[in-house]
Structures are given as C-alpha cells and as structure tokens.
Design a protein around this nucleic acid. Structure first.
Lengths: 133, 133
DNA sequence: CTCACAGCTGGAGCGCGCTCCAGGTCAAGC
DNA sequence: GCTTGACCTGGAGCGCGCTCCAGCTGTGAG
C-alpha cells in the first residue's frame, strides 16, 4: 500500500471485503459493463477507487432488492451517459421501488401464514409430547 | 363439472387458476416429490382434491418466501411421515421464519437507500433540468 | 365420424447469475 | 535465484427452477 497517493485505491482483495462481492463477480460485473473498466496498477492488477467502491455499493443495493442484471446495466449506462438521463433514472428507480414495496408486502403476508403454522405446531408439540423427544 | 361428487376435485386447468402454478410446474412438483401422486380420472387426467390445493397453497407460501425446493421437499417428506416429525417441522419453519425476517429487514434497509436516491434525483430534476452532478 | 382441445409422458433445453479452471504474470520475501 | 501468493485472462461449467417439445390419448361438440 502506497499511502502517499492523492487518490487512495483498493486492491481486489480489499474490494471483496468492502463490497461483499466475490473476486469473480467483480470481474464479471466489469466484463458485462456494470462497472467501467477499472484502473490498473503496474503489472495489470486492478485498483478500485473510492468512487468505484461507492458505485459497487449502489449495485449491491439494487441486487439485494432483486433488480435483474439487465436492468442494472440499463441504469449503469444512463449514469455513464450523464446529462439528460436523470428523469429516466428517476423513473427506473421509482418503478423498482414499487416492486420492492410489493416484494416486502408479499413476504410479510406469507410470513404471517408461516407464523400461524408455527403457532399451530407449537400447540401440537406442547399438547402432546408422547411421540417425540 | 359433476357437482354430485362426494369429494369435489379440480381439473389441472382449474388448479392452475387456484394456485398460480403453471401446469408444467404442477407436474414438476409431483415428479420431484413435493406433492404426492395425484389421483387420476378415467383417461389418466389429474384430479386435484381440496387438500391437494391446500397443500399447494403451503408450497406457494414457502416458495414466495424463498425456500429452496430441496428444503421444501424435506418438509413435504416430514409431513407425509406424520407423527413424530412435528418438532422437526417446527424447527424447520422457525429457522425459515428467521430467514424471512432477515430478508425483510434487508429489503427494508436497502429500500431506504433507494428512496434516498430517489429523493436526491427529485431535487436534481426539479432544481434544474439541464445540469448533471 | 371428425375435429378440436385439454391433458398425458419422458426428456431436452433454457435463462440467470455467477463460479471455476488452466495456465500465466508480477512483486515481494527468504 | 527461487518460491509464494495474489491476481490476471478467456472460456467452460454449474445449480436452480422451471419451461418447452414431440408425439400421443381420451372426451365432448357438431
């Protein structure tokens, strides 16, 4: 680590730690254009800058909420295109947000059913211990 | 529909409507043992009984909450085994429920970040339509 | 009788999102 | 100099959960 750099960077290994993505996934994301070609150190090893890591954080957020890779790429392209795409990006995120809300609602509803079943099983188990344990 | 039956059953098509699973998925679930071999009408066509549809509802619930097929099969086998597996089933559901809770928490956290981004984009869009960050 | 249609079977194929691999390079430590 | 270890590349492979297909059969309408 050369700490005197004006722009601190991260080795691939560090970036794995920071983002939770695997080395393979980081390279995969770069290949398919989810992230721009990453700067290289002498020798060809990747050096992720702060902004790269931040962008990876955004990707992590979108992935965690189930956005498909294709849509993420669409988003990434718009971010790269910059000017004039903000409205489009906003629309994309708003739509995604609605999807996430639905997803959460579904999970909560179904979780309710699961917990009912758990409750039922608990009464069964506590009422009759004869067959088990 | 022959309404005089003592045990009303559902055609495959009806079952698709009732459960939201596709015809192929229903057959697939049967093949892999998620549901027991379904009764047949003369001619070999499947006839799903009420209890089959209810069980499919349980499977729907588990799938919606992201339980892997393998785990669902484990659960199905225990249900079939009946007595003595209740404690085990309870444990399985409790563990799954914790997973679902985590999933919901993660979604909510990440959704927060998305909404922040949306808010930010809104200020950008309404403040000035020509500039870029 | 003919036809359309819903469903049947076994098995192949697919889309997604990684994940793994062989074979190589470079930098640092002993 | 030699070894170790992190990382490189292009491309193949994989696990999951379906989904599709060809070719067939039984049922009901006209």
């Amino acid at each position: 680590m050369s700490g005197a750099d004006s722009t601190p960077t991260h080795s691939p290994g560090e970036t794995v730690q920071l983002t939770g993505f695997s080395l393979d996934t980081l390279r995969y994301y770069e290949r398919i254009g989810l992230i721009e070609p990453v700067h290289r150190a002498v020798g060809g090893q990747r050096r992720y800058r702060e902004q790269d890591v931040e962008w990876l954080g955004v990707l992590r957020c979108l992935r965690d909420t189930g956005m498909p890779i294709a849509r993420m790429r669409e988003f990434a392209e718009q971010v790269r295109a910059g000017d004039g795409t903000v409205a489009h990006r906003l629309a994309l995120l708003e739509e995604h947000d609605r999807g996430v809300a639905d997803q959460i609602a579904l999970l909560q509803r179904q979780r309710g059913r699961i917990r009912e079943k758990i409750e039922y099983y608990r009464t069964v188990v506590s009422a009759d211990v004869s067959t088990d344990a």
